[in-house]
Design a protein around this nucleic acid. Sequence first.
RNA 1: GGGUGCUUAGCUCAGUUGGUAGAGCAUCGCCCUUACAAGGCGAGGGUCGCAGGUUCAAAUCCUGCAGCACCCACCA
Length: 918
Amino acid sequence: MNMEKSYDPKNIEQKLYSTWEENGYFESGIVEKDSYCIMLPPPNVTGSLHMGHAFQDTLMDALIRFNRMRGKDALWQCGTDHAGIATQIVVERQLTQKGIARQDIGRKAFLEEAWRWKAESGGTITEQLRRMGSSMDWSREKFTLDDELSNTVKQVFVSLYREGLIYRGKRLVNWDPVLKTAISDLEVVSEEEKGSLWHMCYEMEGTQEKIIVATTRPETMLGDTAIAVHPEDVRYKHLIGSSVKLPITNRLIPVIADDYVDQEFGSGCVKITPAHDFNDYLMGQRHNLPLINIFEDDATLNENVPEKYRGLDRFIARALIVKEMQSLGLLEKIDDHTLMVPRGDRTRTVIEPYLTDQWFVQVAELAKPAVEAVEQGDVKFVPENWSKTYFDWMNNIQDWCISRQLWWGHRIPAWYDEEGVIYVGTDEADAREHGGVPKSVALRQDEDVLDTWFSSALWPFSTLGWPEKTPEFKQHYPTDVLVTGFDIIFFWVARMIMMGLKFTGSVPFKEVYIHGLVRDAKGQKMSKSKGNILDPLDLIDGIDLSDLVNKRRAGVMKSGDANKIELETRSEFPKGIESFGTDALRFTFAIMATQGRDIRFELTRINGYKNFCNKVWNAARFVLSVVEQYKGQTAEKDLIIGVPEQWIRERFRASIAQVVKGFNEYRFDRSAQSLYEFVWDDYCDWYIEVSKVRLYREGTSQQVKDGICSVLIEMLEDLLKALHPIMPFITEEIWLKLRPILPARGESIMLEPYPAPERHDDAKAVEIFEWLKEFVLGIRRIRADYNIEPKKVISLSVFGNNEEQLGWLQQNEDVILTVGRVGNISLAKEPLIEAATSLVGELTLYIPFDGLIDKNAERIRLQKELEKAEKVARQTEKNLENQSFIEKAPAKVVEEMRARLENSASAIVKLQAQIVKL
RNA sequence: GGGUGCUUAGCUCAGUUGGUAGAGCAUCGCCCUUACAAGGCGAGGGUCGCAGGUUCAAAUCCUGCAGCACCCACCA
């Protein structure tokens, strides 16, 4: 059996993945087994994998593999999203570089471009998902613009429309003047920015009186249709009902009273622009004010403003308005002011409230059952506190603007006749039939497409073939868990719950696991523009410094920033990034996936877990070589299973119980931690070391040797299986090498049953082995404290009259002799003086000075031990002297406390005596 | 203006119904011992953000405060 001396993930991973995929191991069968199903949050089809994906995919894959091994019919439904805005921006940018605007080539040609781009780059992310080891069912891969999914979209749209839950109307919406499309509230991000508050003077009509209004957007004055004051404001009460002459346009507008106005802010007078502000719009409705739209769709000024301002950009117009007001002597003052500026999440441009015809979903009615589902626990958020966030949003939910003035997406299935009457249907024929429109009447389809999130909201059932009653839908819906980030609870999670309940009658998933954000080592959010992103593939394969620098510089806009980023990158990664392999990356994600906290990704951590991979690799290398050398033909029933064997089995049982619990509770950190400790501390540091002694020693019977070999193998296989959901590649690679010496097994570790936490009744063995560990540690501490050369063989004396422990000593003498580098062990009839001392259970072990140890040093060492014991004694005494402790604390705790005091007291006596003698 | 999370060793973080404060990395010794130097063996290091309260007992429960981060919200 040949294994390289150290683990090298290169070459192994991709080969194994191809085998798995080719053999169909990822595919769910519709079989007589319980389903376990996860929906992959579909990544943008033309996107590429970032650390957030890698993290999320690791967790999902761990769950899927774990449940598959536990005998479930596991389906990880995968696919990609057409990502309307994001993809359209990319394609438009490509056209712009060729000097073409999308309007030049028209809708049809543009869509061909977009599909071409999808074909070209659509494989990137799916290939990267494969590199992560993701065991998703590729045979069922979907795309949101597939015919099947598009049909679902149309059906849902038509059905909601006919029920009156979708309507079209002229409303003030968030308008992105760069993309020239409406966007939803969620796609607007408000950011605090420094700006100004301009105080402008308006003259009253007919009197000389002036009033002052404060505004952050002077240019919108061209669309003002009122001035509002508070009805109780004594300063302005007398003006209510009179008119103001709006400067520049010289229109007359009324002064109105509305208690929305805050008397304390600014001057207490508010200019009202109903067509360009959400509050003003509402106020306009209350007071029947006219709406004057002053913008074109690109936010240049339109024909409703004085001629000199027409065609100007809004910000240029702003400056000119301020200048003109100033020259008219109507600019009172300018204050610095920080305000929340609404920006588009894709374009970062300032969003305009803009009056247009759009399609909306009336959400309140859908939200109600979706809230109840979470209240009743049909959907559970993990961690639980996210349900509060969900409730807060759902209880204040606004109608959802679902139309986008884009081309890439699901075209709205609505048609208009000459008079603009709307006919909705799954296709034109259906719309005609439903609306009773004869063939002779020409219909034209709505130009707009649906918000990408509309189709995403249907993902859990559209991918399973709904509305057809497919076997997949029956088997896998509702799905088990949705794994996602908090940032799309509103965008996606809430909407899936609403749509799922509305159309399938049940929730789309039973649990929602919300994970944290992956940040850089300094705790900063990773972003291209900050130049601090790490590419998961670079962590897997490694990257040299110059490539890394170039990659990071490329994401940055300003060249000054790029230089700064280059410097930072060079100091943080002086040698670039070495190759860590997928398993190390995945293990890092898993062990850092605690709940309710973001994770900081540090190279030191992943490096540590790469070492862990190597540790597993070498343990396996050891087991395989040792088995080859020492294993005989002992029959199963004749194997001698010793104390260490019983102990390691019990340790595994306890560990695997923790691991299973961790997976069930989405505490991947605990599962991973528990596995790490078992493999390294228990299996490698103790069991393997102790096994060596007994295998290498002459005179060990073949039954014992075969017992050891069989448990070495058994534990190795079990730990590989236990680790497999987190580290799929290395575990498979080793398991395949191990398989020839295992009883009949299947083709792949991923199809093997997950180890179960079976009961072993090995309490005694555990007690003995833990005692043995203490004994060895006692020797090691003395050796280390006195710098006794590791090669130096020492003698040992033991004093004590605990027959049981003396028996353990005798039974395990060989282990102590070898692991402790001890030449011989003798029993002392009385305490020794000229020796270093260590207390182990009821026994005292002595290492005679023999010139190795200085008497004074030993006295100091014992003094320290004594202080420790005294501290414990004081603490426990304090408790036990307290009457109310004895009365009120549980008996078990009191008992423990007594035992602890007894132990420390006996240690104190022994240590004091020894110190005195010295 | 509301809301959520965080504050524990030098760093990054665990700490599950309250019952002797833990890990990894880093640091300091000693070892290239035939699975692994990507390793082994050992050591040092913490008034658990601050102030109160509940309790026999508080890192853990309650209240208040401070700092940091994030989310939501129409103050011109």
